[in-house]
């Protein structure tokens, strides 16, 4: 990787100030995406600001009808948290099929969301659960946050502090993993809260995570896998690469959506 300046601030304010001053600054959370990208020279920040010593950015808490997770909370903590398992078991399951144990010991929820990899798992959960991403400046609804491949609503100098998930009555996540990278070839998160049903798809779309409105409509009739029988998203807008073409990905989305509903009903 190319040389960079390194800072390890000890407060959020200091981190924001460093980020504002840096010409080409990047925040380092768990580093499980940024460091590999820097090695490949897909990213070459002039300044790296490590959030590892900033206090108050970790932790999992149930607050009324919401689950609140600090941005620097490691995947492994979410995976094993009794609070998460009780409030949103689908979220604990999602994290358990992400990367591998050593990666989960480092990777963070905030880092995953800020990166918005089109095959990452957390964006699907945020979009389907209608999460709110809280930064040092404002609150951003998941519907407005994800803006395309590796692109988010985050402005210069903005730092994700925590994520607030409304607790659903039912939720499920299923993904078809690429066997080597463990990223989603197609992953579907379904959530039902009151009369609202949301279906979010990751890994498959050519502009990142998206809501599959057709499936949401179909599930409003009856929240059951059968409601999705024969339903497959259009291949238009599906990603196509050496791992899977658009038609295969579209097919996988249909299958994963039915399995996600099954899983949601199993609780």
């Amino acid at each position: 990787m190319y040389a960079f300046e390194f800072h390890r601030p000890t407060s959020l304010r200091q981190a924001a100030s460093l980020l504002g001053k840096a010409e080409d600054g990047r925040l380092l959370a768990g580093g499980q995406s940024l460091l590999p990208m820097m090695k490949l020279r897909l990213a070459s920040p002039g300044t790296v600001i490590d959030l590892g010593a900033v206090p108050g950015m970790t932790g999992i808490e149930r607050k009324g009808r919401s689950l609140v997770i600090g941005a620097m909370t490691r995947h492994a903590e979410v995976e094993t948290s009794p609070v998460v398992k009780e409030a949103i078991p689908a979220l604990a399951h999602l994290v358990s099929v992400l990367g591998d144990p050593a990666v989960r010991n480092r990777g963070t929820i905030g880092g995953s969301l800020a990166n918005n990899d089109p095959s990452a798992d957390y964006p699907a959960a945020c979009l389907a659960l209608g999460a709110t991403i809280v930064t040092n400046q404002r609150r951003i609804a998941a519907d407005d946050f994800f803006q395309g491949v590796f692109t988010t609503a985050l402005e210069e100098g903005e730092i994700i502090v925590k994520v607030v998930f409304p607790i659903p009555s039912r939720a499920g996540y299923e993904k078809f993993r690429h066997p080597a990278s463990r990223f989603a070839l197609a992953g579907v998160f379904v959530a039902r809260r009151g009369g609202e049903i949301r279906v979010a798809v990751t890994g498959a779309g050519d502009s990142g995570v998206f809501r599959w409105h057709e499936a949401e409509e179909a599930l409003k009739g009856r929240f059951a896998p059968k409601s999705l029988d024969g339903l497959t998203p259009s291949t238009e807008g599906m990603n196509s690469d050496i791992h899977a073409d658009a038609a295969y990905r579209a097919h996988l989305v249909g299958v994963m959506a039915r399995r996600a509903v099954e899983r949601a009903l199993r609780r």
Binding site: R8, G31, Q32, L35, K39, D50, A53, V103, N105, R106
Partner: peptide
Amino acid sequence: CDTSQCGACVVHVNGVSVKSCTMLAAQCE
């Protein structure tokens, strides 16, 4: 592999396994 896939570089940092090819030494302060 140097790409956090293979695990030949796994060490423990503060008691948990990490891939030491995907962590800066400076993060280990």
